[in-house]
Design a protein around this nucleic acid. Sequence first.
DNA 1: TTAATATATGAGCAGATATTCATATAAGGA
DNA 2: TCCTTATATGAATATCTGCTCATATATTAA
Lengths: 121, 121
Amino acid sequence: MNQDRCERRMIHQDWVEEAREILPNAHVIKQMVDMLKAIADPGRLQILMALNVREMCVCDLAALLGVSESAASHQMRLLRHMNLVQNRREGQMLYYRLIDEHVMEMIEVAENHVAELAVSE
Amino acid sequence: MNQDRCERRMIHQDWVEEAREILPNAHVIKQMVDMLKAIADPGRLQILMALNVREMCVCDLAALLGVSESAASHQMRLLRHMNLVQNRREGQMLYYRLIDEHVMEMIEVAENHVAELAVSE
DNA sequence: TTAATATATGAGCAGATATTCATATAAGGA
DNA sequence: TCCTTATATGAATATCTGCTCATATATTAA
């Protein structure tokens, strides 16, 4: 098995053990990844950036991205389940807004990163 | 077509247009998403956090994650192509290290986010 | 109550992504 | 030179993800 071979070939066992100690547990890693995955999609990223300006309804977001309302609604469900957005009903429409300030912090870091890439190219 | 229906049903055309103006262009969005996707994976996230402590070789990283060296090498290629890590040869081994400071900024925000989730639960 | 609008949701499909397996390359030692 | 070790890589497979389509729910108006 590869697993065994790798155990035998592990070069710096002390480094690996130290790394294991500083790494968060599997549950925390999963929560971090879930949040990152929520942002790591062109559609959802644009939705989050748009909602940072003002709340919007599903049809607006669908029009913004040029996708069906069903597709937009699926994305909003995902963001809702990740506790990144909330909605407010006004008549027939649901207005979505951001509820998490960390998301925009991360998006800003990503923007800065890309801006620096552009300079260094 | 759904697309047309949605255009017809767009509720706040002015909001949508304003959102379009503040959104980065498609190329920038893609670069941001590529970077986020690179981090949004349990294996790569742990690799990046481990490399933040010290450089490591592929076999160490494979052992750390409990995956084959081939799988680890594929992940490293991806991170390399994203310009997030660099390697340095020392004899037969390649030592990988971080070359991007934004990645850890983002990972720290994600960590804080999860820590706050834990408090509010 | 019936019809229309706005959104939600489940199932299924298509495209993307990660892993495995086999093979290739690069360096060191015999 | 030949063998071993460490890593890289292409192809195939398996899993995941996002979209579409059909249908359901909730609200408003007639």
